[in-house]
Write a protein that binds this DNA or RNA. Structure first.
Lengths: 345, 345
DNA sequence: AACATCAGCCAAACCGCTTTGGATTTGATT
DNA sequence: AATCAAATCCAAAGCGGTTTGGCTGATGTT
């Protein structure tokens, strides 16, 4: 069923039917009711291609999902982020368009998407410090929101981010207060902006207490169980092993935990662990009481916020850039305790 | 840059330029070269809306991602599945369109997608036994491939599935051969077709040896760490605890493992664990040597196969229904051993 | 009664592409 | 030289919507 048929059946012009359905005032309430009920009866849906051609809007948002070229993995937070964003799109009649791309080819993918003009806006995932995609999209003039930040051009663009530095500074201070002096950082790849900030928070807390930074206690790898395991095992095997770990995700924390168990230690008693918890649906940090002490910030909520912000920008262009800096909660779990034989807080 | 401008610049008609770019023979090689180089120079891309309007094809595939209404979780295998399918789409110039939907509203979502006609085909996720979506899509005539099976209409439709029954039957036999007699099944929700088949495989193996089925040893919940933990803890606390577990995913296995550790037992020594391993990129089952003994089948590969099959069907309609039944590998890890004090295999 | 106003509707143009049905030119054939 | 076929190219008609610029008839004003 298309517009032509529908209007023929109604004995009306296409103009009137289109206007009736799109809420224009030049149509009497009586006819509008009649048109709407007919549209429902015949299950009429405007063809999206035709509509986009006529209006210039595609009612679609593009997401580019980078796949790590090195390890063929796609970041597991995407599932939750997408779920959050998808909710918002569904509520607003928007479509989500996904492109899966090796992470060394992202620029090309964005350029491609922009040139084809098949979306009204883009959400940028996994920004690097000083990310070239930002300049690209700004030049093109395609509305976009960055999930995370890019360090340099922050003022001029729209983004939603967790206050990663603050979160890790707090987590580190928490451990320091417990008397821990050697804290192992099991971070994500520090080519990612968020991982860089987390390390900054960690370092800042240590330096504020006049503690030296030990490169042996800082790992930066993909956030997988295996990487977490390897990093923690290496640190634990060193002459001066850490008494606590700070892990960048609940998944790498699983590896950290395995290394701890392997070493014959008990988490929460012999050794403390604090994680950053993205509050993933399928990887909850416990139920009522958290398993791990954590800095927590829901990535699904971030997805929602990014999508809402983007739709808002599309609806009302020309606003000043907007930023949402979310603070992570510090939740207490059973994975932390005083440093064994430590000096105390 | 659109066709009209491009052809004006070239001093050719839109017809000729369009034909040159789409590989039609009615155009001399010389002009084709000229057109192609101009298209490249001006970075011309045909407008997808216009193209789809003119051709009737959208060059897009729809995926509906159900979100559990009960626990707000989206199945973590999607990330990998989508990565696999996305590769194939990218190679073939197709777009992926995602819709995120509460899992009690999926039918409506499919109907909506079909009515709007914004995709050339659909991949059906998470089929239930005798799933109504299959009938719906068949009626509508939209090409589709099911990831998994629906038990009843299997012969008439296209699907890609792992031989789940066989996999779990083999896994159970493996444990039985080791002398285990009480094996706890930590399954996914058995409203899912794949989970049902897994239980069937488990039961069949037990019955083949004349062993009674104990409902206390069968759990069927969402495949989260927490659910796995709860199920395993309950079973371990029972009067006659299991000496082995069969877990439906590496994530619920993490919970099983936590319950085992909590009970003061050592996995692989005191108690055995076999898992089904979807070979998720961010949740690898070890590196060289698997952590868990597992039935392994890459969900990412399944995504690739589903997409390839669907594109094939779209390109050549009217073929007989095609089925791909993938066999899972049984890989040996360090999580299994003989039943303690058991009768031996 | 003459005129302006306005609500309600419509015909036709347009969005950017593909494709049908010629038109023109070229080269070979007789 | 006349004829025919093949090779190239083009104008125009869709595809299914939205939107511009009228047109008509009823109402209100003077």
């Amino acid at each position: 069923m298309n517009l032509k048929e529908l209007s023929a059946r109604l004995g009306l012009s296409q103009t009137t039917v289109s206007r009736a359905l799109n809420g224009y005032p030049e149509v009497s309430e009586a006819t509008r009711k009649r048109v709407e009920s007919a549209a429902r009866r015949y299950d009429y849906r405007p063809n999206p291609g035709a509509k986009s051609l006529a209006t210039g809007k595609t009612m679609a948002i593009g997401h580019v999902i980078p796949v790590s070229t090195r390890h063929e993995i796609v970041n597991p937070v995407f599932a939750d982020f997408i779920a959050g964003a998808g909710e918002v799109y569904a509520r607003n009649g928007y479509d989500m368009r996904l492109t899966v791309v090796p992470d060394d080819d992202e620029d090309h993918a964005y350029r491609e998407i922009a040139a084809r003009g098949s979306v009204d806006g883009i959400i940028v995932h996994g920004p690097r410090p000083d990310d070239p995609r930002v300049k690209l999209l700004t030049e093109i003039g395609l509305p976009f929101v960055v999930h995370g930040r890019t360090s340099t051009q922050d003022e001029t663009i729209n983004w939603v981010d967790v206050n990663n530095r603050r979160a890790f500074e707090r987590a580190t201070n928490f451990l320091l207060d417990f008397g821990h002096r050697r804290i192992g950082l099991v971070n994500g790849l520090e080519t990612m902006d968020f991982a860089m900030r987390r390390r900054q928070g960690y370092c800042r807390a240590l330096e504020a207490r006049g503690l030296a930074l030990d490169p042996e206690l800082m790992a930066a790898e993909e956030m997988t169980e295996t990487s977490g395991y390897r990093a923690a095992r290496r640190m634990l095997a060193a002459p001066a092993p850490p008494t606590a770990f700070l892990a960048s995700s609940i998944i790498s924390a699983a590896g950290v935990r395995r290394a701890i168990t392997d070493a014959g230690l008990v988490m929460g008693r012999d050794i403390s662990v604090v994680i950053h918890d993205d509050d993933l649906g399928y990887m909850k940090n416990g139920e009522d009481e958290p398993i791990y002490t954590a800095t927590r910030s829901s990535v699904r909520a971030a997805g929602r916020l990014c999508a809402e912000l983007l739709l808002d920008i599309i609806a009302e262009p020309g606003q000043n850039p907007r930023h949402l800096l979310l603070d992570a909660d510090l939740v207490l779990g059973r994975s932390t305790g005083p440093a064994p034989g430590g000096a105390g807080g």
